[in-house]
């Protein structure tokens, strides 16, 4: 049997000419396949097995797993910690770095650390405000912003130096990602802002949750006018809504999430709201796939890795693509 080389269980893979990273995600994206990434919910636990159990569910249906960095300003296991565990087991990860909790000295160190652990993808984020979390008294750092963070890591990778100019002996071979939110004002500035992030080094984009296809289409039309879809790979964020109540809660409490009234009405009218939410998500994925310039989807669901896996399988986006073989479970003594 010939195994699709895209699904080699080990990540990082041998380097390829013209690639920034040795990761599978970059290979999938460059090959023109519709990429799928999914978000892992970090545990509040000192037990590495919890990370592995959650990752295993996702790894069978996606090309790379996002490790969040205290999203919603709630602290969990750090993204460097999660990535260090996952890369040992050969999982492809996207390490998220937010500018909220670390200054440039810490961030540059984490980038090198991540690369040393075998992280191939880094997503540069601003970070939710500390007021959103359960320790609102924490000091927001914001020494860098997401754009200058992109430029910083690109400098480290391509020019082999820190911001200070000091040399780096082995540069971090990472594919650089950024976030975009086409669903928040100022709407007409959003595509331009994306262009700015591309200019600063973004090679792939993961967007905020999409529940509004017309708004996404307008955004993408402008992105195509600017030719940005040829300069970066755009993965649109999606996620199943558990109920109309959850949808309302998210809309009010999660910064930057836009859910149109029709979506909530549809959930409310359904007999089984959870099933309806899942079906809605599958439909969204299928519609998003048809939009020119979209390179993939990024699936998120709070603490519901199994559901994410179901949604991806049911949407058919991984059809004809051999799901990746189960990741090697690391030997116990290696993680203990």
């Amino acid at each position: 049997m010939i195994v699709d080389p895209l699904y080699d269980p080990g990540d990082p893979l041998p380097p390829l000419p013209g690639h920034s990273s040795r990761g599978r995600l970059e290979r999938v994206l460059r090959s023109g396949k519709f990429a799928v990434t999914a978000e892992l919910n970090p545990p509040d636990s000192a037990d590495p097995r919890e990370v592995f159990e959650r990752a295993l569910v996702l790894s069978e249906v996606c090309d790379a797993i996002n490790a969040t960095d205290a999203s919603g300003a709630n602290t969990h296991m750090s993204s460097v910690g999660i990535c260090s565990l996952l890369t040992r087991a050969g999982y492809a990860v996207i390490m998220q770095i937010s500018c909220r909790d670390r200054n440039r000295i810490a961030i540059q160190g984490d980038v090198l650390g991540a690369a040393a652990m075998g992280v191939s993808n880094i997503l540069c984020l601003t970070g939710d405000g500390v007021q959103a979390g359960d320790q609102p008294g924490a000091k927001p750092v914001f020494d860098l912003d997401s754009t200058s963070l992109l430029e910083t890591i690109r400098t480290m990778r391509d020019e082999k130096r820190f911001l200070s100019g000091r040399k780096i002996t082995v540069p971090p071979a990472v594919l650089l990602g950024a976030a975009a939110n086409p669903f928040a004002p100022p709407y007409d500035y959003r595509p331009i802002h994306l262009g700015k992030k591309v200019a600063a080094g973004a090679q792939f984009i993961q967007t905020q949750y999409c529940y509004d296809i017309p708004l996404l289409e307008r955004f993408m039309a402008r992105v195509r006018d600017l030719d940005l879809h040829k300069k970066c790979f755009i993965l649109v964020g999606v996620g199943p809504l558990a109920s109309a109540k959850t949808a309302r809660w998210m809309r009010t409490n999660v910064p930057g999430v836009h859910i149109p009234d029709q979506v909530i009405a549809r959930l409310e009218g359904a007999q089984k709201q959870k099933l309806e939410g899942k079906n809605l998500c599958i439909e969204l994925i299928q519609q998003i796939r048809e939009i020119e310039g979209v390179a993939g989807v990024h699936v998120m669901a709070y603490r519901q890795e199994e559901l994410v896996s179901d949604v991806i399988s049911a949407s058919g986006i991984m059809k004809n693509r051999q799901p990746r073989p189960q990741a090697r479970r690391p030997a116990k003594e290696r993680i203990a």
Binding site: R100, N181, P186, H193
Partner: peptide, 11 residues
């Protein structure tokens, strides 16, 4: 957030 390159996604 002292952002100098554009808005965050939380607007």
């Amino acid at each position: 957030k002292n952002l100098r390159n554009g808005p965050c996604g939380g607007v």
